[in-house]
Design a protein around this nucleic acid. Structure first.
Lengths: 211, 211
DNA sequence: GCAAAAGTGTTGTCATTACACCCATGA
DNA sequence: TCATGGGTGTAATGACAACACTTTTGC
């Protein structure tokens, strides 16, 4: 298959997903171990090749369905990578997507890695991740942040998520004032339980959450 | 050529450029007339297929060199379009780029069209343009604006460009105050000539302009 | 002197920043 | 009672918005 595209215009089209979640004030990314060459046993981003009648998003949803349930609206296309040498086998371009997972959607942290602890990844996946993080940082907004939050959460958790994505410290009092004035959140009737400190009030996003 | 990719993963990779400039307070886009089917005689965005050893940007620079001189850094990749039916001949995805041209780089306005006067375009190019405009509006910043300006310009022209891209009216006094306080601009020693009104002082961007 | 665009200041409002201590809970 | 994170108010500063008239040029 790999040597088929002697015609110069043809190429493989791949998608790769940078699946992010936040745990313990750290941004984590889903990676899997490659089982075949090239880059056998290296970590890589999940993804795969487009089928004939699929959009890139449909491919991703198909490829990721045993990792997590994703919907079109929670996939963010951020960049397409076209370096002709990015795949040593044959010409393959990759369309990069970001998916943000709330902790509720993450059943196991087994395949999630901290980005600063990464050594060598397969292909140009290091570069793809870097570009994804840059995109996130440049586009921090309530919609993106919301995707990373569980249905109910304390304000301080929300603050942590903002801080991790924007890579900036935020003043606690100012943050609470601003977010509460914005009417984005609704206070829930329940509070935290079984924590060995003062239990926090829980909030949720007030808009209709697409699930 | 078109029926060659029976193998499901292969496809054509195209790039399309949304080349913008501003004239008389209007955003103009470069379009050309298709000379062959499908969509013969329709207007279309310039672009073409990637060669084997080219990045998408290299393809664009090759394809556009008889329209205008472009450099890597003045091309902005904004979205990739993967609808399997977007090309009726065979599977072709398109990587969309925006190029911003200062009036100095536009030798003739012959092929430039106002976006609101467009009827039907070839393929999904209407959609690509819409997406490009949205990208511009969401990412108005000094770097982008700078690419649209000539080397020397009156402040009010700069204001017009901001207004056209952001699709908002800006108060003249407030704009001048803000931009002059920002130290982005240097006042030139020359002023406008041959205008039948009070001649404006000319300014230029103070940073090193990559040409 | 008329048309056309250039240029100019002040005031009010709102958003953002900086900053430090007490509170409620579990162990 | 101690450790842990939750929760609170005020004052100063800076950014932004609203607003209308005079100036300089060519014709």
């Amino acid at each position: 298959m790999k040597e088929k595209n002697t015609n110069y215009e043809f190429a493989n089209i791949a998608v790769n997903a940078v699946i992010c979640t936040i745990k313990d004030k750290k941004l984590l990314i889903y990676l899997q171990t490659r089982e075949k060459d090239p880059f056998k046993n290296y970590l890589e981003l999940p993804g795969g090749l487009l089928h004939q009648k699929e959009t890139a998003q449909e491919t991703l949803i198909r490829k990721l369905k045993n990792i997590t349930e994703l919907k079109n609206h929670s996939l963010h296309q951020f960049q397409t990578f076209t370096d002709p040498k990015r795949d040593p086998r044959s010409r393959t371009i990759s369309i990069g997507y970001i998916a943000l997972l709330s902790p509720e959607k993450v059943t196991s942290l087994k395949n999630f890695y901290q980005i600063d602890s990464l050594t060598k990844l397969a292909f140009d996946h290091q570069k793809i991740i870097k570009s994804a993080i840059k995109f996130l940082k440049q586009n921090v907004n309530n919609q993106l942040i919301q995707e990373l939050m569980p249905s109910f959460f304390p304000l301080n958790d929300l603050q942590v998520v903002y801080q991790v994505i924007s890579q900036k410290k935020i003043d606690n009092r100012n943050f609470r004032k601003k977010i509460l004035n914005s009417n984005l959140l609704q206070k829930a009737k329940i509070i935290q339980k079984n924590v060995n400190h003062r239990p926090a009030s829980l909030y949720r996003f007030a808009n209709k959450v697409k699930s």
